[in-house]
Design a binder for these strands. Structure first.
Length: 937
RNA sequence: GCCUUGGUGGCGGAAUUGGUAGACGCGCUGGAUUCAAAAUCCAGUUCUUUCGAGAGUGUGGGUUCGAUUCCCACCCAAGGUACCA
């Protein structure tokens, strides 16, 4: 009998399905353990080899935890709203619903082949109305809430209205838009209902406001920075401009401080926490107002270095700053206008990454220094970003490198305020090791003292105050797309109103054209039935709008991150139609114990979901304010993309090594047309895309060699590798073990299959242990000491490594163990039984098969996990062969019964290091010739 | 540019967290088996070498009896950079 993985895997997958082995109950005497994967977006390219990496890791851990007697929740679903399905629909007319469903079926087929222990009865899809009903419900909760700073949490809008009725804004401390103004209770009552709604919109956690977007008029749509390449749209190459649009936003900034604080109580990777902290970007400083000369008004700046205020020699505004055109002098008007136009064409990312070219224009206007009353010229420059702080900076060239470079470039004076520090070559940017000079009342002070003194002075003369600023911006929530959750809002006289929680879900209407409408409205503008009848509380035809009972509905949809910000709670109770998650279910499962997913979500999904969690916690809908106790970032499996050189302006393509002097650009091509030696199949590519049909390929040595680049695996990069082939030719167990063997879970690694045969032959060797002479046969004799040592060493290593998620080293341990047992010709039941259990989380199919061959009727899944016995591992110092190799030191294992004195006595005459092994604590004595240097416990 | 991570043989990676660098696997070389091949098994495999030894963990410094590990500077690659998911 040889190892027939196809038969075995089919058999056990069927068995698990039939017996619903992995169906999880919401009631159990066992302790709960919730293991979550980041659910996939079902792309048309199918599941690629990167997806299973995380799923295999969670599956190993889930199976391990079941052996350890936990009630394990291990669900899976699909993040099924998104842009690619919509773009496919635009190209082909195919409804995204259909392509999404096809893709999901394909994903499911691929996932099923790998033997995952998911509880599929809990599957969710974000694009199903019984799911997005609750996404919309959360949106309405956000719409109906504001952030009360007195209470430090979100509260309902009705309590805000009560407050306004009683006191106006007098006692109110709440997070609001900058336009919010103060009023008394009397004034509030005098407002008409529209004015009241406008005021409330300044406070709602989901609110409408003017936001700057990348607008492409040819495509009639807003583009992500990602979709803009060299200032033009990726699709079509049309020009893109910045434009202000009314958009929904989420007031995530209200939670900035709590999002930072919350990081301290969760076990997430430090690097990821650091990324989130930096993204939120808390900085303490002061906001300072500079009055303008000759014009009424003032410019407010935020600075982290108010101590350097006396070093200000100019100010710089972002080109988008609202005051720019108002303050610009006549003589400068044309050049300022031209500068604004040119910078509106540069993407924000361009502007940030380009620190070398210094550009800017003088506005002709001046401000007054609030302390010295000096005349401060006002410039604009695109190194200042409109979205950060106030969009204006006070420039201190002696203390900030970018200000310094700007001043040098435009010959603006630089004033030194640092005593005995040379600033002729570069700015002095440290916050220590200096004393101030030329700074009036701050002269002679250091950073700490001057900061305190200057902030209290600023507040005393009323030109500003000490503030905390966050880099985090409120999250724009509107998308001009079709394939997303409709926003459950209708408009009466331009004011947004909730359609009411009871009327959810607001179903996505069918449309025929997925492009924006001819007048530039989002695709939902194409829907014939898309208006709201407030009496009947239902969607009706938008032809009927009569402004008394029938009103237009919101045309924007929600972004991709909406549905993924709360999905982990839905798994607890997926079919509940009364509640987003039932009280009983949530009080049993509470939160996620282990969450595995990529770090590319660090400042997206993983931040937004924490924000929603805290909001739902504030409303007492959820019991905890952090949803995942532990998170591991699985490293991405990178793809190896292929590129070919095209001679500029022609349809001629050159092989990699003969391009050198020709001006060319690199064109991305599909890796399926390239073989393992980087040779291109020129016939295949001619059929691949129409513009290659008449292409000329200039070869080298009769071959066409492509360029390779390692990058993220993605359909749009044509570098996706599917796991199917490997499953077919080696089996799921081999694939599972190979993906784990590839390297540490957390590390990014390029995909290659060269090592897979080693893992496969490990499984064959394992099979052979149970099948000496090709027939199943195990011995019931007492195992040898050596076999026991191999087994217990393996139990120890594997258990420790599973708990550290070092699955790659687990597999090395298995390989060593099986090699040792084979060479000892060991097939003792007492060795093989525990080994089978040990291996089962990694290679579940073969383990189940061997388990049943060993004569067990019950499924292996429930079996107790073996414990190791250290008495098989530890050897007495007396028996240990001492072979001093002439070098400085070596290691020996010690019997626990020896005390430190005995060890010292024993080793004092030798040069060596001693490890004392007692299972968990290592005592180490480090010795150099003749004396003990260090004893570590 | 900024934030985060990583860089060890021909390749993927290991190193008990400061103590014999290269575990384990791939590849390669030689051998056994075979008419032959596949499969399997055994041995070898960091580089240089005048066979004594010497060099060696991206580069250059530093701390230490001792550095892949800690510190400083730099180079390279990947992820993110706010509308891809």
């Amino acid at each position: 009998m040889s190892y027939d993985f196809k038969k075995i895997e089919y058999k056990w997958q069927k068995f698990w399905k039939k017996n619903q082995t992995f169906k999880t109950s919401n009631h159990s005497k066992l302790p709960k353990f919730y293991i979550l994967d980041m659910f996939p977006y079902p792309s048309g390219a199918g599941l690629h080899v990167g997806h299973p990496l995380g799923y295999i890791a969670t599956d190993i851990y889930a199976r391990y935890k079941r052996h350890k007697k936990f009630n394990v929740l291990h669900p899976q679903g699909y993040d099924s709203f998104g842009l690619p399905a919509e773009q496919y629909a635009i190209q082909t007319g195919q409804h995204p619903q259909i392509t999404t469903e096809t893709n999901i079926n394909r994903y499911r087929e691929q996932l099923d082949k790998m033997g995952f222990s998911f509880d599929w009865s809990r599957e969710i899809r974000t694009s199903k109305s019984n799911y997005y009903k609750w996404t919309q419900w959360i949106f309405l909760k956000l719409f109906d809430s504001y952030y009360d700073l007195n209470r430090g949490k979100a509260c309902s809008i009705s309590s805000l209205i009560n407050l306004f009725d009683k006191n106006g804004t007098k006692t109110l401390k709440a997070v609001s838009n900058p336009e919010a103004f103060e009023f008394s209770a009397l004034e509030w009552k005098s407002f008409d209902s529209e004015q009241k709604e406008e005021v409330l919109l300044f406070y709602r956690l989901a609110y409408l406001s003017e936001t700057e977007v990348n607008w492409c008029s040819e495509l009639g749509t807003v583009l992500a920075n990602d979709e803009i390449i060299n200032g033009v749209s990726e699709r079509g190459g049309y020009s893109v401009e910045k434009k202000k649009m009314k958009q929904w936003s989420m007031r995530i900034c209200a939670y900035a401080e709590r999002l930072i604080q919350g990081l301290d109580k969760i076990d997430w990777p430090d690097s990821l926490k650091e990324m989130q902290r930096n993204w939120i970007g808390k900085s303490k400083g002061a906001s300072v107002k500079f009055k303008l000369i000759d014009i009424s008004g003032e410019i407010e700046v935020f600075t982290t270095r108010p101590d350097t205020l006396f070093g200000v020699t100019f100010m710089t505004l972002a080109p988008e700053h609202e005051l720019v055109l108002k303050i610009t002098s006549k003589t400068q008007y044309n050049s300022v206008e031209a500068y604004i136009k040119s910078s509106s064409k540069r993407s924000e990312r361009d502007r940030m990454s380009d620190s070398k070219s210094i550009t800017g224009v003088f506005t002709g206007a001046y401000a007054i220094h609030p302390f010295s009353a000096e005349k401060i010229p006002i410039w604009i420059g695109d190194y200042v970003l409109a979205g950060y702080g106030t969009g204006a900076v006070m420039a201190v060239p002696c203390g900030d490198q970018r200000d310094f470079d700007f001043a040098k470039h435009f010959s603006i004076p630089i004033k030194n305020i640092f005593l005995d520090i040379d600033i002729s070559k570069k700015a002095f940017t440290k916050k220590s090791e200096f004393k101030l000079m030329n700074s009036d009342f701050l002269d002679g002070l250091d950073y700490g003292l001057s900061m305190k003194k200057v902030i209290s002075y600023i507040e005393k003369i009323g030109c500003g105050r000490g503030t905390v600023n966050y880099r985090l911006r409120d999250a724009v929530f509107s998308r001009q797309r079709y394939w997303g959750e409709p926003i459950p809002i209708y408009y009466k006289k331009g004011i947004p109103f909730s359609i009411g929680e009871d009327n959810l879900p607001l179903r996505l209407p069918d449309i025929e054209n997925y492009l924006p409408t001819s007048d530039g409205s989002p695709p939902l503008g194409n829907a014939k039935n898309w208006a709201w009848n407030v009496i009947e509380k239902k969607v009706v035809s938008n032809k009927l709008i009569d402004n008394s009972i029938i009103f237009p509905l919101e045309l924007n949809t929600m972004p991709g991150w909406a549905g993924s910000s709360w999905y982990f709670y839905r798994y607890m109770d997926p079919d509940n139609n009364e509640d987003f998650v039932g009280k009983k279910a949530v009080s049993y499962w509470q939160d996620v114990d282990l969450y595995i997913g990529g770090s590319e979500h660090a400042t997206g999904h993983l931040l937004y979901s924490r924000f929603w969690q805290k909001f739902l916690f504030d409303l007492e809908i959820l019991p905890v304010d952090e949803y995942a106790k532990k998170l591991i970032n699985q490293g991405m499996i990178l793809g190896s993309s292929a590129f070919i050189h095209r001679k500029s302006g022609t349809n001629d393509y050159y092989s990699k090594n003969i391009i050198n002097k020709v001006k060319s650009e690199l064109i991305r091509i599909d890796i399926s047309m390239v073989n393992i030696n980087d040779e291109l199949d020129c016939e295949a590519i001619k059929k691949w895309q129409p513009h290659f049909k008449n292409a000329n390929f200039i070869m080298e040595n009769d071959k066409f060699i492509v360029n390779r680049e390692v990058e993220k695996m993605s359909k749009s990069k044509f570098n996706v590798v599917n796991p199917d082939e490997i499953c077919d030719s080696y089996g799921a167990d081999t694939l599972r073990m190979y993906e784990m063997f590839l390297g540490p879970l957390e590390q990014a690694k390029p995909w290659n299959t060269s090592g897979i045969s080693g893992v496969h032959s490990f499984l064959k060797k394992l099979w052979k242990l149970y099948h000496p002479k090709d027939l199943f046969s195990v011995s019931d004799k007492e195992p040898s000491k050596n076999s026991l040592k191999s087994l217990h060493q393996t139990i120890k290593n594997v258990t420790e490594d599973i708990n550290d998620f070092s699955f790659n080293t687990c597999i090395s341990s298995f390989m060593i163990c099986v090699n040792e047992l084979s060479s000892q010709k060991c097939n003792d039941r007492k060795i093989l039984e525990p080994l089978t259990i040990l291996l089962s989380p990694f290679a579940p199919h073969i383990s189940e098969e061997l388990w049943s061959l060993l004569g067990n009727n019950s499924s292996l899944v429930e079996e107790d996990y073996p414990l190791f016995d250290k008495s098989y591992l530890v050897e007495s110092i007396k028996n240990y062969p001492i072979s001093f190799n002439g070098k400085m030191r070596f290691t020996i294992e010690l019997d626990l019964s020896l005390n430190i004195k005995e060890i010292e006595d024993y080793v004092l005459n030798d040069d060596r290091t001693i490890n004392q092994l007692d299972g968990s604590v290592t005592k180490k004595i480090i010795i150099i010739p003749g004396k003990i240097v260090n004893i570590v416990y």
